[in-house]
């Protein structure tokens, strides 16, 4: 049986309001994707993505589109983990994130984990387009299966462009049906949580942090541009978060 899932796109736009604050002229929730403005700090607007339903389920097509204008500062978080679940049909689910950040704009995108539940099939595509002079902190964490459960099928592509040129382009595929060797010693090696933290700062063009080993399966490396990437694998979501938070604190400090 083929079912038509939910189709929803949430949109938000952040603009500097000219009085030292960030306004949100567009804040459109849609279907299961609800956006709520919460108290920010300083000139930063803070938005929470609140999942109003469970999912994405197989067949769903969900998207979040965000634009951060010149000089605006946006912090996006989420209220809870996103759990990819099987749908009634055999169709996969899609979750697309499309973000643009203008020169002098700053985005901190720090949502909760994405959990790939047994039997689910989700394709995530994240496309971050930065103008030269934009700032970014982007974290993504994927957990393969709920506690004690086999993972679903998950593929996730993350593309970061700076001034129209790809700075980072990475795709991870795992779970049943993924290309061979995904759980082997070249890819995930039995770890069940993986995460990335991308930090783009114009000042890294002058001096980027040196490569660093952050633990048993976590490293920081400068990219070919004013940016660094922290890649981490961990046995579970909690240990993964600890590594990524320490790395971010190190970069912010």
């Amino acid at each position: 049986m083929s079912t038509t899932g939910v189709r929803a796109t949430a949109r938000l736009t952040a603009r500097a309001d000219g009085r030292g604050d960030t306004a949100l002229p567009v804040l459109e929730s849609h279907g299961p994707l609800a956006l709520r403005r919460t108290r920010g700090s300083g000139d930063e607007a803070r938005v929470m993505l609140v999942g109003a339903m469970s999912g994405p389920l197989g067949g769903d097509r969900l998207a979040v589109e965000a634009e951060v204008g010149e000089g605006a500062r946006l912090h996006l978080g989420s209220a809870a983990a996103t759990i990819a679940l099987p749908g009634q049909g055999k169709e996969d689910a899609r979750y697309d994130v499309r973000v643009r950040v203008a020169a002098g704009g700053e985005l901190r995108w720090l949502p909760e984990q994405l959990i790939s539940a047994c039997g689910s099939d989700l394709r995530v595509s994240t496309s971050l387009d930065l103008a030269s002079g934009a700032r970014l902190v982007f974290r993504e964490e994927q957990v393969l299966g709920r506690a004690g459960e086999e993972p679903g099928r998950l593929s996730s592509r993350l593309t970061v462009r700076l001034d129209g040129r790809a700075l980072l382009d990475q795709e991870v595929s795992c779970g049943p049906g993924a290309p061979g060797g995904w759980d082997g010693p070249a890819v995930l090696g039995g770890y069940r949580a993986l995460g990335q933290l991308v930090v783009v700062r114009p000042e890294f063009a002058e001096r980027a942090p040196e490569p660093r080993v952050l633990g048993e399966a976590a490293t920081l490396t400068p990219l070919a541009g004013p940016a660094v990437l922290v890649s981490a694998l961990a046995p579970d979501a909690l240990l993964l978060r600890r590594v990524l938070e320490e790395a971010l604190a190190g970069l912010d400090g």
Partner: peptide
């Protein structure tokens, strides 16, 4: 072009 990556290859290379 494809962008398939092996996290352990990337991490292992830096280690």
């Amino acid at each position: 072009l494809p962008a398939a990556s092996g996290p352990l290859l990337e991490i292992g290379a830096e280690v």
